[in-house]
Simulated scan of single mutants.
Amino acid sequence: MKLVILILSSIATYVKTDTLLCSEYLVSGFHGVEDEALTASSVHDHPIDCSPRNGRLFYPGDDFLPKRLGGWISNVIDTDQFIQVTFHVDTIVTGVTIQGRYRDFNQWVKSYYVLHSMDNVTWTTVMSQNGSPRLFNGNTDMNTPVTSSVTPNITARHLRINPRTWEWYPTMRFDVSGCQIKQQIGGLSEYELKNVTLSEKMGNHTVFSLMSSRSVVDCGAMCHGHITCMSFAYEAPNGVPKCTGYDAWIVVHESSTSSMDVFVNKDMLDTYGYREDQEAAILYNIVEVRQDQGSAAKTCTSMYTRLMVVDTLTRMEGLNRIIAKYYVLIQDFRYFVAGTYTSTVWSYLGDTGDVIDSDLWSPGNPDQGQGHCVMLTQTGLASVDCQEQLFAICGN
């Protein structure tokens, strides 16, 4: 597929507030960090890998060569040890969750300090109300996660967990909840050509439509000039140029049969962490904040898209394959997606023109007695109470 990117700049710069991308799993979730971002004061000298990359929440270890332990273990047994994460961007930290070693030996952290830094040089310990370092409660067994809130919240680029007491060895798996602070560059936009056709629903998201655009670059410049324009289409039917801007990117992933070029604001895709899966033909995002269906739908709208429409087995299998890569995300495999029960019909967007295919439902579903909304599970779509607190999938 040919990749075309337009980079457009403007003399005028827009004053935009920072975007907060929140998650319960900032270390190992969908918007988490790479292995190299996990470091430690020391690593246990053992034939099995005990390095900090194994310190991810719910990581079970690996028995294949080279073997990896289910957890990080320090090599020194004292109160100076720590495991550390370096975030991609400045991050608001609201909580910390820890576990002990996955199996074999009773090893876990009973209590710990939390330290934070912006430059990885000067470190500040989270303090209690009486002015002394706050001692966080840890684990009492190997595998039960224990979550502690960090109040007041802190902002950090680097975070350390410093074990103070432990069972046998300082050993742990962990994750961090909070919000990444994503900054946008005013006056600069990149638009990426997508091999897609626009959904009919995009008509409801039109920002402007002009018949006089001279080129695709001019069309992009017009979209760039509208702060709410997130994508645009350029076509020239019968030789007459037409440019249409939209405040969303709801698209249908299939080869375009017309001369229309569809460009999506790449900066916004990157800001909100959208990813593309060519095999499943989806542009998707996983919202790792538990909320009811109405709030989940609003979150997707705030990111200029919608709850994912799971309308094919290929798309469902693709999403299941994606989620299965994350140990933290398979713990509660229930995700709000598009769909409601209205007037005796289960449909994607609340009308009778897009009825959900019966082949997509998991066994025993749908059942309006369980609720009038739709979630994705490992076995298919399922009905669920709209007030249930779940993660969600946004995208197209």
Rank of each mutant, 00 (worst) to 15 (best):
S10K: 09
I11D: 15
L21G: 02
Y25Q: 05
F30H: 05
H31S: 14
E34N: 07
L38G: 07
A40P: 09
A40W: 07
S41R: 08
S51I: 02
F58R: 00
Y59P: 00
D63M: 01
F64I: 01
P66V: 07
R68E: 14
N75R: 11
D78K: 12
T79D: 15
Q81E: 15
H88V: 05
H88P: 03
I92F: 07
T94N: 15
V96R: 06
I98R: 12
D104G: 00
W108T: 00
V114D: 14
V126Y: 08
G131F: 05
V150D: 14
R164M: 14
T165C: 06
W166M: 11
E167F: 00
W168Q: 10
F174D: 08
I185L: 12
G187S: 13
V196H: 09
L198V: 11
S199D: 11
H205C: 10
F208T: 07
S213P: 01
V217S: 13
A221Y: 11
A221E: 10
M222C: 01
T228S: 15
F232E: 07
A233H: 01
A233F: 05
E235I: 00
D247N: 14
S256W: 06
D261G: 12
N265M: 10
N265A: 11
K266C: 04
D267A: 03
T271D: 10
Y272W: 12
Q278V: 04
A296Q: 13
S302R: 10
E317M: 06
G318P: 04
V328R: 01
L329H: 00
L329P: 00
V337N: 06
A338L: 02
G339Y: 10
S347T: 10
V355A: 12
P363S: 14
H372L: 11
T377K: 03
S383E: 09
F391K: 12
